[in-house]
Amino acid sequence: MAHKNIIQKIFLFYYEGFRSMTVGKKLWVIIIIKLFIMFAILKLFFFPDFLNSKFKTDEERSDYVIEQLTNPKNTDND
């Protein structure tokens, strides 16, 4: 029972906190839109993990990176 009260207290703490916000509401909208763009659009469609998406095991990833490192491309940094 006491445990439930603590959970209720924490819930009410956040609930009332969010309810009483003024500037914060606008900021939360910005945060939610931003996180949606980042994770639901950018991460999903534009930023797949290159090695994880191409290979299934760490051994394959290691082999690929060693292959990349031991066959340097013909260019220099400028």
Binding site: M38, L42, K43, F46, F47, P48, D49, F50, L51, N52, R61, S62, V65, Q68, L69
Partner: peptide, 16 residues
Amino acid sequence: ILEFEFGTNWSNYSWF
């Protein structure tokens, strides 16, 4: 975003 870029654009580095 920087961590996204590590995984996508800089995978050799991230692995290394």
